[in-house]
Design a binder for these strands. Structure first.
Lengths: 221, 221
DNA sequence: TGCTTTCATGAACGCTGTAAATTTACACTG
DNA sequence: CAGTGTAAATTTACAGCGTTCATGAAAGCA
């Protein structure tokens, strides 16, 4: 019988490769990294990784799944913050931004990439589901405690899209730094949260009819 | 003197190539299209395009600039809609979404791509500036007429990020179609707009202190 | 008709991801 | 301990990539 890789050996190699891949993906983009470079860094032949991964896409998927898991872990940890739902949501929001800003490449790897047929990679699917669950969970707490009002699922997507939009525009350098990011983020959150208390418009009726502009009003507080 | 390409000839070839490139970029992604394929479709040698473009990136930049111009034109046209600022903003918002949904690849080419050193391509820079100007212009109208309240520049970025976040998540298939997109978009716009009338929080004071949850209030209307 | 200059081309270079053939090295058997 | 079978690693090879450069074709002027 020949030598046979133990499960631990396989995991060790895969981990080593993923670490190298993530660093290089971050530096040069997933597509600016070649198998030969990766192999050289690992000190093995160019084709050796093919015993541990089906192809380059599978490496990318593994790296993305790892990023999703780190992201989810950060959010889950933040969600254990003491205090009411509002405090928790602040902590989670901060963790979200902290991750996006400190690991922009990982963030891009996660959300700024439409990897085709993600179903090929069950582990990636699991990790994305975990991250998503954590992200939207805290919205339910906010609704439950009355800090915002509305359908948690709907609001979850809207809040997520709002933050995500800011982050990707920021990471792409499209915000030009005009208003600083913290202001943008605070404004986005404040508008969305406060907006949930506005009376729901009558669905689909002719809202575009003339109606006098309002000039603020001051609700309360 | 030898034959000399007229300016019109150059423009004709560039346009022809850009049309083919855009179609193929849309179908297979900018990076899944090779110069050889492109040249084959044009019926010329693989290296002929290099007389008209410095490299593949310049082709991409030209295609992106064209997309930005079409996008800006659509928004500008919508901005001439009759009615007050609110009607205009509705028209512009619809034009934005219509473009994103009917030409998702062009949208991704425009916003979902961090082309390095865009300054290399002045025409691209011009086209992006034009699109951005149109996008944020209508916010000023809304503020001027009192439909929303606040700093137009800040609000412009926030509204843009909100829409953009929804669109990219939708295009990336990350919304799962749970709430339909129209609902998400309507909600986002409503929350942001109504939120601008909420009293501004006192800046930076300890807002995370306990404060009783509010259970709606109903502002007016 | 020739000369000159511009444009188009084909060949070639150094890459890429990866399949297939080949070599290496280990664990077991006689 | 030598021998052997086979998993693992390497080498080789291929098709394709973006791009450069020497070469050939065509066109205007003398």
């Amino acid at each position: 019988m020949p030598r046979n890789l133990s499960e631990a050996d396989v995991k060790a190699f895969r981990d080593r490769l993923c670490r190298a891949a993530e660093r290089r993906f971050a530096a040069h983009g997933a597509q600016g990294v070649s198998m030969r470079q990766l192999a050289a860094e690992l000190g093995c032949a160019a084709t050796t990784p093919y015993r541990y991964f089906a192809d380059k896409d599978e490496i990318l998927a593994a790296v993305r799944a790892a990023a999703f898991d780190r992201f989810a872990a950060a959010l889950e940890e933040a969600n254990t913050a003491s205090g009411d739902a509002r405090a928790k949501s602040r902590a989670v929001g901060e963790a979200y931004l902290r991750f996006a800003m400190s690991e922009p490449d990982a963030y891009r790897l996660m959300f700024d990439m439409a990897q085709p047929d993600e179903n090929r990679f069950p582990d990636l699917k699991r990790a994305t589901a975990r991250a998503r669950r954590t992200m939207t969970a805290y919205i339910e707490g906010l609704v439950r405690e009355g800090w915002i009002k509305g359908d948690p699922k709907l609001l979850g997507y809207v809040f997520w899209a709002g933050i995500h939009g800011l982050v990707v525009l920021h990471l792409a350098g499209k915000l030009g730094g005009a208003p600083d990011f913290a202001t943008l983020h605070r404004t986005m959150m404040r508008l969305l949260a406060e907006g949930t208390f506005a009376p729901q418009a009558a669905p689909q009726q002719d809202m575009s009819q003339q109606r006098p502009p309002r000039r603020a009003a001051g609700r309360r507080r």
